[in-house]
Design a protein around this nucleic acid. Structure first.
Lengths: 274, 274
DNA sequence: TAGAACTGTTATGCTTCATAACAAACACGA
DNA sequence: TCGTGTTTGTTATGAAGCATAACAGTTCTA
């Protein structure tokens, strides 16, 4: 992740006083943040949290600047000191959501030992679904149709964030592949996929999935896993399976996931306590 | 589909002249539609098509009344003669989308003989994906997060439309199940799913899926198929797989679908010309 | 052909996004 | 401590959208 920030705290010559640009870099500056800098960061965080609260309240990916301001006890124009416009706030929320989902998935995965890739995938799938069910609006924000009126910055931070998040799933398969514990997936390929992926790894195709390459059949298996768990998850998160009782949904998801893992060549998950 | 309309052309006593209620029933009235009735139907259709055009143009599920009116050479308030508000128009679009998707899926399915359920499912999956790729906004409209600000009518026509659409997938499995050509699915179940589905068929659970009941394991298999094809499809339709060349996406989808069908107990699709 | 019904218009009010102009609080060096 | 420039808030203002009201022309029908 690129540490390319010019020098925190050293404003560019062209910076106007009320400039909208926000420093989202997470690396610590040499000088401790000033009182004002901390206040600013806290306000930015509060704006984002308030926006998320509104999204959750209304069950959409939409929000009104005026509502955010009202809930924060401010007037709407004050928010423009922190975000240039709605799009900039949305971009920040999207990046956060990708990072948060990626972290949730990575945490769940890493609580299962490396030598149990079946269990690691099951953990990933469950955390993916749990995250989406808890935060359907943020899930829609990153993996649904773009929000009305939103125009993503070109080649921007959202793409990078997506790359990072998806890398968490890939690394699972990469490690399993490296460890040699993957059986050949049951998925068919007449050679098309392998051939195209060869080009991909030769750099002709720009994959948003970070990290070292995996064998074609592993890549195919990974996509199969992602698509399956994503399908159930998004139907579930958006309420299209609400006619099933929770226990039934859980059971169907569990059985589907285990089957998908088996098809993908992942070994049976080792029984775990908990 | 309920033919419960009071009597077309016979306005209720309470009907104000400018009443917004729209007759969406498709059954032919005894008296042929008058010049005005045809004009009205045509205008309603044009409004919906214009709204869809705007959604496609902007790549969202949103639209502006004023834009629709402008494109139609009208003023915005005129639209309220046809739809009470944005929600009513959205409801009509959602119902249309469900019906259209259901029809596309049914058409594709019925072009494959009844005794080739594997081929029928493959056809369904491909048409599902094709429809979603051609109409990502309508796909999001019905299977994504609700549109900002939209409040669906309670127990309303959208639920009914969803039921009808999903019944198309179910009937495939029902027919295969009846014909006895389904092998036992490879999906696991410790009894939870079968037990809960027994309650379901006893009427304790209200499934949105129309038609006669299918055996528990078939139901589970159907959901597995739906979730998998939906996952790939929605990732694809929303552009999250755009980094893959088309041929690769097609190949991966094809192999995933065939695998899912096999897991679900559907026989290998019979080779077809075309 | 006269009245009712229908379909369009302009005028209006409310709300939102966004900018401009201005005022208070703060940081910090002389 | 004071004074100056920065930061962060305010009110005022404008453009655009949803929705309703009041009104006018057109079409149907008795």
């Amino acid at each position: 992740m690129g540490d390319l920030t010019p020098e925190p705290g050293t404003p560019e010559p062209g910076d106007q006083p009320g400039d909208h640009s926000v420093d989202h870099s997470g690396d610590q500056p040499e000088r401790p943040p000033s009182r004002r800098e901390r206040a600013r960061a806290a306000t930015i965080e509060e704006i984002k949290q308030t926006a998320l609260g509104l999204m959750r309240e209304h069950g959409t990916t939409d929000f009104r600047f005026s509502d955010i301001a009202r809930l924060m006890g401010m007037t709407a124009p004050a928010l423009y000191r922190y975000f240039a416009d709605r799009d900039e706030l949305l971009t920040a929320l999207i990046v956060d959501a990708y990072d948060d989902l990626g972290r949730a998935v990575a945490d769940a995965r890493d609580q299962v030992p490396l030598d149990d890739p079946g269990g690691r995938f099951t953990a990933v799938a469950h955390s993916y679904r749990r995250w989406a069910r808890e935060e359907p609006e943020r899930f829609a924000l990153i993996l649904g149709l773009p929000v009305p009126g939103y125009h993503a910055p070109e080649e921007g931070p959202t793409t990078e964030a997506a790359r990072r998040a998806m890398a968490q799933l890939k690394s699972l398969f990469y490690e399993a592949s490296q460890a040699g514990v993957l059986r050949p997936p049951m998925l068919s390929d007449d050679g098309t996929i392998a051939g195209l992926l060869a080009e991909h790894h030769a750099g002709k195709m720009e994959s948003p999935i970070d990290g070292p390459p995996v064998p074609p059949e592993t890549f195919q298996a990974m996509l199969h896993c992602w698509a399956s768990m994503h399908g159930f998850t998004s139907l579930d998160a958006y309420g299209h399976l609400d006619w099933m009782p929770d226990v039934l949904r859980d059971a169907v998801f569990e059985s589907s996931i285990r089957m998908v893992a088996k098809v993908a060549g992942l070994p049976e998950p080792r029984p775990r306590d908990g």
